[in-house]
Write a protein that binds this DNA or RNA. Structure first.
Lengths: 339, 339
DNA sequence: GACGTCGACTGAACCGGATAAGTGAGCACA
DNA sequence: TGTGCTCACTTATCCGGTTCAGTCGACGTC
């Protein structure tokens, strides 16, 4: 089956290619009657302008790129990315933008992907995840002048716009809540220590613990997998002064931690309180259900996509704050038994 | 920063655009010395051919499309899609193909997306997931002659190639295993009943139960969410003749079922054995760890991507079988207590 | 030495749109 | 009646590649 081109529409309408182009793009230069006739014919024969041809002259690819730099193993585990993508998609498809996805091995590969996309004019802009300190992607994107929106922050985004949530505030609120319950020995199991958002949470944790005089606060790091979360929990619970509450950087590690606690004969929340960051349906499936910090991830993605589209349209965009995660107390947190 | 074009390379090399094109594409028509000089210059100035221009003349988009038709809520829950995507990606990026992703609301929207991609020449082929009986996408893709590979089956794929796994065999093996343990009342909690792969499993379940004379076998359906899985389990366990073993169509529902059983005072595996389809790290995190049917999903995706690339290259492709899911017995299955 | 052949390369057409410049009809107005 | 202006188009050019038809010099051959 042959794809209809603008010439086919023009022929059937008895006008020139130029007239069809004006009609379809809502430009002046054709009468309303002709415009309507052309639109009808275009719909009839199922015509959509070739993205390639349009890109070549118009210079807009109508596509946005997203490169994910995580091992396949952890990508699947976390609902975060898939939810983010569905939110991004909702916004993009409403404006007929396509999403080009690429899974990369490391930052170097990601930078190479950006350069290629740029040279090939494949995307109009990119979304950047998992920012690191001194991220090489930021200067690269600035150099290429490729519109970009960083998902995460605040800080370290150079001249790029970002959409961020106040994780520091959410973390402080959570620690305060645990302290209000009577906990004094609180531990944190963080995600990948290279990631900026892990560091932001680390700093917030240090700050709030110092402020509240929690001298026994400890933090360990992991890679978001259940295995690592379990190992970290075992280490924490085996220490002489074991914590009475643990705050995990994702739900999978929290569930793993819950299992470890139970396997070590500790009751949750009696002997140990557990809080998960990222509230997913899983948190409500386990016993006891997990107290969790949750927020609307698809909305976060949609927000970022809107910012990126604005940046692509040439509108001035700055960093904007998304909603802060909300703490949902469930059965996994309570006052420590041996208060 | 200006993007380098083929003309820039040609000028610096002192040759014509045509010569550069031949050199870069490995075509005859240039001497080895010139080819080498051109390649060096291209690398130097960071030249990549514009995908638009290449697409316009060469008619290949160097991109494949994947439309996902699931509510955002269930997309994130299941690691399946993200793992599939990472497998697909691994194969595509090795050959510099891009993956265009679109999340759609329903089958009608998905068909519209295919038509648009085709008319816009945005993709060279598509991967099709979640086949249904009498799927409208199949005749549409046949009509458009858009290369496509169906992920799933067997059957109902018309003239399209597919990559499929023998779920029927895996299911039969699992039921036989449960029967060997001594179970006679076995239930199945299926996924979305409209999906072909649910029906294939349904039929296999019916067949094996008939063959083994399990008259009390029952099946109910769900939407893959933990909530629905929990509800289905409650219904099953509340019936007069409650099952002694339940087989779930995904891991999230199985974990929800485990919770429900424990909340109803049943011990697992003493009173109830549980098997999950799709083995994820989660299955090992709960107590008891879940017996699960697992397979290598990224490899499955890579397999499908290879088939699609072959189809795009014009090679004759037929339906091929991927590996069958393997049963990993863990703590959630045992002989029924009141045998 | 005329001729055919081959390799290495050039020039131009083409893909399908967007868009600037040009054209001609119709109309208002002096 | 002629001028100027607007409207509704057409024509031509351009975007950056691929590719086909030439061109041109070197070489081998009889």
């Amino acid at each position: 089956m042959k794809r209809p081109t603008i010439a086919d529409v023009a022929r059937r309408a008895g006008v020139s290619k130029g007239a069809v182009s004006y009609a379809l793009n809502g430009q002046p230069g054709v009468s309303e009657a002709t415009r309507h006739r052309i639109l009808t014919i275009a719909a009839e024969i199922g015509y959509s302008p070739s993205s390639a041809a349009r890109m070549l002259s118009g210079a807009t690819a109508n596509a946005v790129g997203l490169a994910l730099c995580r091992p396949a193993r952890t990508l699947g585990i976390e609902p975060f990315f898939m939810e983010l993508i569905s939110g991004v998609e909702a916004e993009l498809s409403a404006r007929s933008y396509a999403l080009t996805l690429q899974v990369v091995a490391d930052q170097e590969a990601e930078v190479a992907v950006y350069r290629r996309w740029w040279a090939e004019r494949r995307v109009d802009g990119v979304l950047v995840c998992d920012l690191r300190t001194d991220d090489r992607r930021v200067p690269t994107l600035e150099e290429l002048q490729l519109p970009a929106v960083v998902i995460g922050g605040p800080g370290h985004t150079g001249s790029l716009a970002s959409v961020w949530a106040d994780d520091a505030a959410a973390l402080a609120e959570t620690v305060e809540y645990l302290v209000a319950l009577g906990h004094r020995r609180i531990a944190r199991v963080g995600g990948l220590p290279d990631l900026l958002h892990t560091q932001i949470r680390d700093n917030a944790f240090d700050a709030v613990c110092r402020r509240l005089g929690l001298v026994d606060a400890t933090a360990v790091w992991s890679d978001y997998t259940g295995e690592e979360g379990a190992r970290a929990t075992r280490r924490l619970l085996s220490s002489a002064q074991r914590p009475t509450a643990v705050l995990y950087d994702n739900d999978v590690m929290a569930i793993a931690g819950l299992s470890v606690a139970q396997e070590m004969g500790l009751t949750v929340p009696g002997d140990l309180s557990i809080v998960a960051w990222d509230d997913s349906p899983l948190c409500q499936l386990v016993h006891p259900p997990l107290t969790a910090l949750g927020r609307d991830i698809p909305a976060y993605g949609a927000h970022a996509a809107r910012q990126l589209l604005a940046a692509i349209a040439g509108e001035p965009v700055t960093s904007v704050q998304d909603e802060t995660a909300r703490l949902t107390p469930r059965g996994s947190t309570a006052p420590p038994r041996n208060r």
